[in-house]
Amino acid sequence: MGDFKTMRLPVLAAAALSALCLAVPASAEDTAPCGGGLVCANNPATVTAALEKAKFKPTLTKDAEGDPMIESEESFYKFQVYFYGCKDHKNCDSLRFESSFEKAPENTPDFANKWNAKKRFLQAYVRNDGEFVVAYDVATIGGLNQTNFGDVLDWWHSQLGELATFFKEELKLPDAKPEKPKG
């Protein structure tokens, strides 16, 4: 009984590393001021305020490169919000929501492909170190109004719920629907 792997464990610290080695298009940096009432990556306070309004508990900090980063959690998993396309740690042009899960034998490209083929919004992948990651990139040039950014947060939250179900069903974790008996 105790041998069941009952939980997929989120990874926190290591996730900060994952944000560093991604390729970004040449046109980085958002120098236009964030419009009144809008949410923009070039104004991190607008992002934390919107997360708070949606009942998350965000903490604004910095990633390993010194760019803004938010750590938070929701009812399913802990997550980070990375700021991309920054110049001198400012004028960031986009956000990336990310949640990571510790190395496990089932973390294979096939497993990630199953998610990517069937589900929406979250891009899943297995890193070289064996961790399973889901990410949701959000373009913020021009800003998002409060309702639309609230909808973005809804999608992030609901798709993490989908992910919990996906884990249960695909990995046949204890709460999943009964499967055919072995043999």
Binding site: G35, L38, G142, G143, L144, N148, F149, D151, V152
Partner: peptide, 11 residues
């Protein structure tokens, strides 16, 4: 996500 509408620049 398109609920709430997008700014023209953001789209």
């Amino acid at each position: 996500a398109t609920v709430g509408k997008l700014t023209k620049a953001n789209f």
